[in-house]
Design a protein around this nucleic acid. Sequence first.
DNA 1: GTCTATACGTGGATAGAC
DNA 2: GTCTATCCACGTATAGAC
Lengths: 183, 183
Amino acid sequence: MSRRQSDTKADIRRVALELFTQRGYEATSLREIAERLGVTKAALYYHFHSKEDIVRSLFGEHLAALDDLVAWATKQPPGPDLRTEVIDRMLRLSLEHGRQTMQFALANQHVVRDLHPGKENMFERLRTLFDIVTGPDATTEEALRIRVALLSINTTVFAAQGLGATDEQITAAVHDIAHRLTR
Amino acid sequence: MSRRQSDTKADIRRVALELFTQRGYEATSLREIAERLGVTKAALYYHFHSKEDIVRSLFGEHLAALDDLVAWATKQPPGPDLRTEVIDRMLRLSLEHGRQTMQFALANQHVVRDLHPGKENMFERLRTLFDIVTGPDATTEEALRIRVALLSINTTVFAAQGLGATDEQITAAVHDIAHRLTR
DNA sequence: GTCTATACGTGGATAGAC
DNA sequence: GTCTATCCACGTATAGAC
């Protein structure tokens, strides 16, 4: 019984994410990915147009979800409640797409940045979100604190390396941290 | 009047740090660095043994300074005072070596990780520091919070992008953030 | 759906002239 | 101290057979 197409494609995505995160995008060759899976480079090209296409496939849903969040937040009345709600939704979004995807984005910023030329990239989206949550009359230091609160999701996931923390503990910690930084 | 050796070497370091940070280590070729400076690849090899050697030169002092900090912290009596003092010293250390160096390390973790094979790398050093500051009887969530506090230096520098914040404002924000997370 | 074979460019690195 | 010229390995990507 041969492997189903969807299995192979999923396997490629899994191994690619792992290697891209550990060693970096450029430092990982398609040959390595193929070898790890026991297939050939050409097999990868059957499932994906290009190397960049693999990344797009890994990150596409996450970007779309972030778009939805920005769109939603734009329509809400500003205020401190929005702040905690946005943090909450961003946290859920991040954990849904997996810690590794977050780590990958952080460690390969320049790759993620140029996935969709012309369109807004991840960091520009984040900045929009920052501005919505911060409001217009905040001091620089307040703005920094709020941004750090939003980024605490990534920081905490990063900090959790080698600590054996569960998703629940990370979630709890992030809520606590964000709360301390925004109240 | 020809340029002094030290000038050229410093120029290479400056441009390399800039490009490595923006585009990533592997995505930046020595040809690009040389072209930007109006010299040839071979000229780079006069000043540095290899591409990796450039990174080592960029990051060496920072690692040494981190070593000193770890050594110092190990000899101190544990307690909450140590915590704030370590954060303070780490902040000073980070700002001394420049924000860009921090950004570079974060965006090129896999490169920085393997600079000195066999020896402790940057992240292992950080973990030692975490443990010293956290103490043995902390809960997972407390440990996470303290780690995030120590990492708030990097996070804040990252968050400050496009905000036009001064070093003073960043310093103040980090102190505030770390204080909120550790008290 | 996966293979072999191969084209093509680019990158790091070295030799040797000036 | 910087150049030109060149080597070689590797990486992405494609063509075409099975």
